[in-house]
């Protein structure tokens, strides 16, 4: 098993924390894990991205230059990284903020209105974990249970309110494409 994910968006969307959540879940699953942030001259409101690799074997290069999965939380991220995704890879697009479609035909593109769903939950900030939930459902990179268990590592464990909110975000994301498929089938 070898899976690499690039999460990209703008600073403040929680991109780095979402990547850490994934990395913690991979660690709990006893996998080899690397998490690498973009640490260039970044600033608030600028772009932010991080690469997470989860593998059953030791990871040679921690840099995710050709991701198997791309999470594009905003339009500049999709434009910047669409071409880097491997052929037959997956792009999960936050359709609340990205008003265009994935141009490539050799990758799977999935759209989820993460900010809209987050607002329905009552907090715009959890949009990234809604997408993360969807990504976990689509790729099975880690189990949803381990991701939920990892919330206490990324957020202060005493802040139960925040943890419960993000738990719900992960679950809503994980159910989104499942429901969509069932609606279509039904």
């Amino acid at each position: 098993m070898f899976k690499s994910v690039l999460l990209a968006g703008f600073g403040g969307q929680g991109i780095l924390s979402a990547g850490q959540l994934l990395a913690y879940a991979g660690t709990l699953a006893s996998k080899h894990v690397t998490w690498v942030p973009s640490y260039g001259a970044e600033m608030r409101g600028g772009t932010a991205n991080c690469g997470v690799t989860i593998s059953s074997r030791p990871i040679s290069s921690p840099i995710v230059s050709e991701p198997g999965t791309l999470v594009a939380m905003n339009r500049p991220s999709l434009e910047k990284f669409e071409q880097s995704v491997v052929s037959n890879g997956l792009i999960v697009v936050n359709s609340s903020l990205v008003n265009c479609k994935v141009a490539r035909k050799d990758v799977q593109a999935m759209y989820i209105p993460a900010n809209k769903l987050a607002e329905e939950l009552g907090n715009n900030k959890v949009a990234v974990n809604i997408v993360l939930g969807a990504l976990i459902f689509l790729t099975q990179i880690v189990s949803l249970d381990l991701a939920i268990e990892s919330l206490g590592k990324v957020f202060p464990p005493h802040n139960q309110k925040l943890i419960i909110l993000n738990q719900r975000a992960l679950k809503i994301g994980a159910q989104f494409f499942d429901h969509l498929a069932k609606e279509k089938a039904g």
Partner: peptide, 10 residues
């Protein structure tokens, strides 16, 4: 190098 300093691993 900077990558070793910045990356996270278990």
């Amino acid at each position: 190098d900077g990558l070793l300093g910045q990356m996270m691993e278990p």
